[in-house]
Simulated scan of single mutants.
Amino acid sequence: MIFKKIGVLFTSLLLLVSCASVKEKTTQTSLDSNKTKPKNIILLIGDGMGLSQISASYYYNDSTPSFDRFETIGLIKTSSASELITDSASSATAYATGISTYNGAVGVNVDTIAVKTIIEHLIPRNISTGIISTSSVVHATPASFYAHVKSRRLYDDIASFLPDSNLDFIAGGGSQFFDNRKDMRDIFKELKNKGYEVHKNTLPFEASEKKQAIILAPDGMPKMLEGRGDFLPNTTKLALEKLSKNDNGFFLLVEGSQIDWAGHSNEADYLISELLDFDKTIGVALDFAKNNPETLVLVTADHETGGFTLAQDGKDYNKIKPVFSTGGHSATLIPIFAKGPGEDNFKGIFKNTVLFDKLMSLYGIN
């Protein structure tokens, strides 16, 4: 009888421990689930940045690269609908809209029909948005997030989308496409009429309550080697200051454009200087996320440019020689780095169109 009572007591204790364990696991699962949805997403695109370009930050940096701060890494397949090797427009459109399209397409499908971008999905939901680029803001990558044209070369047409885009923050070059146009439109004036604070000469010291358009060069911004300075990290800080005022969250696109241009021209010093500037900007985003833990930081590229390699110099295994194999793009898989709530969604290998689906899911949009 005593043994029977001990057995019943033991069974009861087991059930109690089991229930507590289940409750703990359920609570933990619930907590983990809450952590998987970010309020803010910062997407940094190093145009033309493949694995060798990223590796250069480890060999030519005076400090530990920002890439070292990531633990979650995946790979992206980049082929377009028309070609095995994508261009920036097609790949950026895949990121922005979730559809695979032809090379040169900006925000349109293979039939040149406009497809809604992630920014156009977010703005009606009162989520703040911004784009920053070291190229002109009407260049292929940033344009694919707010414009819809059949060819990336239609710069005047792309600029015409900006006044009605409702972007909260715009920064980069491209003033020649805003005024003195053949159609006599003054995009700067139209931006002002839409409530934008326009800056054409210098970067403002602080964020404004108004929407901001900062266009500081006729076309692309100057190279780092020509004294561009901290334009990219500083505009990123300014954008984060502004966009983070929205309790509903934000989406910020930051493009390090000229890594690609250096790859096309096969200029190693140019490439490395642009890459290090981009790495510094990644650090700004990660520092913000550290202080604002509801923020997810993603770093990737649209494609690799130049077939860039860090090779041994002759027979010297202690000396690196940057080498290019092409003046165009390559078909190599592109790394994606993720840090913050929802980062586990970016493990593995996936098509560039899937990035859009993952972003939309994290924002809770079907």
Rank of each mutant, 00 (worst) to 15 (best):
E24L: 14
E24I: 14
T26S: 07
T27V: 14
D32G: 04
D32K: 15
N34V: 09
T36I: 12
P38W: 10
K39W: 06
I41H: 06
I41R: 09
L43P: 00
I45W: 11
G46C: 12
M49L: 14
I54P: 05
A56W: 06
S57F: 05
Y58A: 12
Y58P: 05
Y59E: 14
N61D: 14
N61V: 11
N61K: 10
S63W: 04
S63F: 00
T64A: 14
S66M: 11
F67W: 07
F67E: 02
F67C: 02
D68T: 14
R69S: 14
F70E: 00
T72G: 07
T72R: 07
I73T: 11
L75S: 13
I76H: 08
I76R: 06
I76G: 09
T78L: 04
S80Q: 10
S82E: 07
I85K: 05
D87F: 03
S88A: 11
A89Q: 11
S90Y: 02
S90V: 01
T97W: 10
G98T: 10
I99C: 10
T101W: 04
Y102F: 14
A105R: 01
A105G: 07
V106Y: 04
G107P: 06
V108A: 08
V108D: 13
V108T: 13
N109A: 06
N109D: 15
V110C: 11
T112L: 02
I113E: 15
V115E: 12
I119S: 01
I119R: 03
I119N: 01
E120M: 07
I123M: 00
P124G: 12
R125D: 08
I127Q: 10
S128C: 07
S128Y: 01
